[in-house]
Write a protein that binds this DNA or RNA. Structure first.
Lengths: 138, 138
DNA sequence: AATGACAGCGCAATAGCATTGCAAACTAGC
DNA sequence: GCTAGTTTGCAATGCTATTGCGCTGTCATT
């Protein structure tokens, strides 16, 4: 069981330490993107800085991607399989629910091509839709 | 001359104080969206808090809109004419230049409709394109 | 088995940003 | 001129990201 998680790390060239296994395990259980504070609360007696560095390492190695949803805190979520170190493919839409404050990925919804004016070169696109998610709507 | 600026404020139901005239005047001179810190530096011997509250007031009254470009600092830019108090129409794309760190509005590029999954309700869309702007590209 | 290099971890500390409370200064209406 | 309400400036708070440093455990080499 833990073998699985460990494999994920080693495949991404990340040393599987106890702390990192915990973090990855926690991430795998999430349905939405989580902030550093969420992670800290989820893994109670843990140091915030250590978790921060674990996430940074994961991001650097292409295991998670970070999302800035405008809530002030950076959110993190596991990447799709096709991400590589330093070369993210997270060109999908993120959804921020104004009610439950959860940020989730909508990987099926690709970001449409934006026609930029002459001389502009696009390197990255960030599309956040805010509203009410399917759990909060009624 | 100052008459003009004053009129803009009164039309938006904002008391035209000296400070606010200065802020609006500064905003009118900008080609890109500016952060609070930019504003503070541009109007040198001014209190950051006062400027912050001026911008808040402007935003509340529909004179400027705020943009979170992921740089950590909120940027502000004047609205188009069709904005009203509490009811913004800033559904245009924002461009963040990774080189000069400037954020500009691309009002001609409307945000395409995003088809959300069942049960999701969109209230606001935030589309930031990052790359190199026409001044920095070569 | 001892040693040394190194990675990871936890604590402390820093810096930048948004935001609020409070008291002084100012403005407008009476 | 006086009072009420608005605006301003200072101080302070809280949250976030980020870095430095020393301790600890691990692993390889001798």
């Amino acid at each position: 069981m833990t073998e699985n998680i460990e494999n994920i790390l080693t495949q991404k060239d990340i040393n599987p330490t106890a702390m990192r296994l915990l973090v990855l395990d926690f991430l795998l259980k999430q349905t939405a993107a989580i902030s550093l504070t969420d992670l800290e609360k989820g893994l109670d007696p843990s140091d915030r800085i250590t978790l921060y560095r674990a996430l940074k390492k994961f991001e650097e190695k292409g295991l998670v991607h970070s999302i800035d949803d405008g809530s002030g805190a950076t959110k993190y979520a596991l990447c799709e399989n096709d991400c590589e170190a330093g070369h993210h493919h997270d060109l999908h839409v993120h959804f921020y629910c104004n009610t439950c404050k959860e940020t989730s990925c909508l990987p099926k919804h690709h970001i449409p091509q934006i026609a930029l004016p002459e001389g502009f070169k696009s390197e990255e696109v960030n599309l956040i839709v805010k509203g009410v998610c399917n759990k909060c709507v009624r």
